[in-house]
Design a protein around this nucleic acid. Structure first.
Lengths: 334, 334
DNA sequence: TTGTAAGCGTTATCAC
DNA sequence: GTGATAACGCTTACAA
C-alpha cells in the first residue's frame, strides 16, 4: 500500500494543506500538530509523490546527461562526478548513451523533454545546430562537458586541448626527444584539431617541426584498435622516431601493444605519452605516462554550474580545467 | 513557450479528450480531425508532458539502476545493455552509483521511490534485508544483476561464479599446469566464496589440491591495487607456482604488473587468467586471457526481464548466463 | 465521432 | 494556525 498526502491528513485530522506545509517546512502550524503529523507520516511510511510535486512545481529534480558511448571508461568518471553533486542536490540523473555517434541524439532529447528534466549536460560530443535549437526550445539550462561549441555560446567545462597537447609535446622535448611522432584521433574541431595544433606548435617553438607533417598520423577515432592499427604506418613513415604522443590513452594502449608485438621495448626503444589518464593508464604495463584530464572534477563542475543556473538564473561561464602530466613509466629521459 | 494539450485542443477546435485519444492512438475520431490535430501539434511543436501522464497512469516509464561504483569499467558495460533495451521500451534509466559500498543505498532507494520508478535493477551488490524490505514496500519489480540473493527469492541474471571459476582452473590444468595459485577478491557469499570453491573443486577433481590452501590468497576486494599488493605474498608462499587464476581482471592486471616489476615474464614464467573480460583485458600487454561474463548481454536480459514483469505481471525466472574462456596471450601451454 | 468532467497527488491562494 | 479549493497537464469514464 502506498499512501498519499490525503491519507496522512485524514489520519492526523488535519488538512492536506497543513501536511504539505509541514513537509516543505513552511510556516503556519503549531508544534503540536507538526509532531502529530510527523508521527502519522512515520507510522504509515508515507513518502511524497515526486511526480505530482513535479507537475505543480514545474521542477522534476532530474537532470539529463547525454553521452556518446564511445568510451565507457571515459564517461564513467564524468558520470560519477556529475552524480555526486546531483545527488547532493536531492536530484537524480537520467543517462542517455547515444549509441553510434549521435544517431539517436534527437530521439533522446525528445524523451528528456517529455520527462521535463530541469537541465541538461551534453558530454563530449559536438553540439549540432539541430540539437542546440531544440534544447533552446526545451528551455532548460545546458552545459557542455568535455566539449565546447565554436558556433553557439554555451557554457562548457573542459581542459584546453590545445594547451594540454602542447604540454605533452613539451614534456617529451624536455626529456631530450627531438624525433617526436603523433597519432591523432580524428579531425573534429573540438578535440581532434586542437590537439594536433597544440602538438605542432610545441614542436615549432622548439624548432623541431618537420616540413611535411610525416610525423603525424591522422586516425579515424580515439579507440584502441585505431592506435594498434595505425602505429605501424606511422613507424614506417617516421622510422627514427624516439617518442610518440597519442591523442588518447586508448590510442596509446593500442600503439604500445603494436610496438611490443614487433619487439620494441617501452620506453627503451620508444617513449609514449597518452592523453586522458583513464583508469587503464595506471594498469598498463608499463604504467602509462599521460596528460590528465580531471574527469571526475569536470563532471562535478558541470553539474554544479548547471544547478547554479537553475537556482540563481544567471549564466554560467566557461571553465577551463587545469591539466597535468602524470609521470609514470613510458617516457625515457634521453 | 511550451504548450499543453489544451493549447492544441483550442487551436484545433476539439476537446482535450480527442487530442488525448489521437496521441495515444485509441479509437474515436475521424480521419479528418486526426489530420487537423496532428497538424496543430506539428505547428506548435507540442510534446506531451510525461510528468502529468505519469501522475494519472501511475507509470513513469523510468527505471532505476543501483550500482556500487566499485568499477566503472564493469558497470559501464552492464549499463549500456540496460539502456539499450530500456530505450527501446521508450523508457529511461536513472542511475545511482552508491559510493563507498552501499553507504548511500537506502538514501537512493528513497529517492527512487519518491520518483515512482516503474522497476529496479540492483547490480552487483549484496541485497541486504533492509533493502529488500523497503523495495517490497515500494511495490516495484526488482531484478538482481551480476549478483543473487541466497536469502530472498528474487530473480537475477548472472553467470555461475562457481562454474566459471571451475572452467578457469580446468583451462589452466588442460594447458598442463599443476602448480596453480589463486588471488581471490574477498569472502562475500555472492562472488567471493563461489569463485574460490569452483577453483578448489577443479583442482580437487584433478587431484591437485594442496593440503593447506597455501596456493590461495584471500584479498580484500577485486581491485587492481589489491592484485598488485598481494601477488608478492602469494608468490612467497607458493614459489613454484606456474599459473595463476585471479578472481577479476583488475586483480589480474595488478598481479601482472607486480610480476613484471620483479622481472618475471608473462606467460613464460607465469601464466595468468583473469575473470570478467573487461575492455582492459584486451588492451593489456600481453592481452589477458580471461573468462568472460557477457556483461552487456546480461544488462539486456535483466532489463528485458524487468519489462516483462512490468507488462505481463508474471515473475521472471533466474537466468544463468553462459561464460566462456577468451584465449589471449597470458597462458602458456606447458 | 465527440465533449464534459472527475481524478491522479501535490502546492498555493485565499479565506477564516 | 488552519482549511477549502483551484490549479498543474494529462487520461478516461460517461454522456451526448
Amino acid at each position: 500500500m502506498v499512501y498519499t498526502i490525503k491519507d496522512v491528513a485524514k489520519q492526523a485530522r488535519v488538512s492536506t494543506a497543513t501536511v504539505s506545509r509541514i513537509l516543505n517546512n513552511q510556516p503556519g502550524y503549531s508544534e503540536k500538530t507538526k509532531a502529530k503529523v510527523l508521527q502519522v507520516i512515520e507510522e504509515l511510511g508515507y513518502e511524497p509523490n515526486a511526480v505530482a510535486r513535479g507537475l505543480v512545481k514545474k521542477r522534476t529534480h532530474t537532470i539529463g546527461v547525454l553521452f556518446p558511448s564511445v568510451s565507457s571508461l571515459f564517461s564513467g568518471k564524468l558520470l560519477s562526478g556529475i552524480e555526486s553533486v546531483t545527488h547532493a542536490k536531492e536530484s537524480s540523473v537520467i543517462v542517455c548513451h547515444t549509441q553510434e555517434l549521435g544517431s539517436k541524439t534527437m530521439k533522446y532529447l525528445h524523451l528528456l523533454n517529455e520527462k521535463r528534466i530541469d537541465g541538461l549536460i551534453f558530454a563530449s560530443e559536438v553540439l549540432k545546430g539541430e540539437y542546440y535549437d531544440y534544447i533552446q526550445k526545451m528551455g532548460v539550462p545546458l552545459v557542455l562537458l568535455a566539449t565546447e561549441s565554436p558556433e553557439f555560446q554555451v557554457p562548457y567545462v573542459k581542459v584546453s586541448d590545445y594547451q594540454a597537447s602542447y604540454s605533452a609535446a613539451r614534456y617529451l622535448i624536455e626529456k631530450g626527444h627531438t624525433k617526436i611522432g603523433m597519432i591523432s584521433g580524428g579531425d573534429d574541431v573540438i578535440a581532434g584539431i586542437p590537439r594536433i595544433e597544440g602538438f605542432k606548435q610545441a614542436l615549432k617553438d622548439h624548432a623541431l617541426l618537420p616540413l611535411n607533417e610525416e610525423n603525424i598520423f591522422w586516425g579515424e577515432d580515439f579507440g584502441y584498435k585505431e592506435g594498434k592499427k595505425n602505429f605501424p604506418f606511422l613507424l614506417k613513415r617516421f622510422p627514427n622516431m624516439t617518442a610518440l604522443f597519442c591523442a588518447s590513452d586508448h590510442l596509446a594502449m593500442g600503439a604500445m601493444s603494436a610496438a611490443v608485438e614487433i619487439g620494441m621495448k617501452i620506453p627503451e626503444d620508444l617513449s609514449i605519452i597518452g592523453y586522458d589518464n583513464l583508469p587503464i593508464a595506471e594498469m598498463a604495463t608499463p604504467p602509462l605516462t599521460t596528460v590528465e584530464q580531471p574527469l571526475e572534477e569536470m563532471g562535478k563542475r558541470a553539474a554544479a554550474g548547471l544547478f547554479r543556473m537553475l537556482e540563481s538564473g544567471d549564466k554560467m561561464r566557461a571553465e577551463i580545467m587545469p591539466h597535468q602530466i602524470i609521470e609514470r613509466k613510458t617516457v625515457k629521459h634521453l
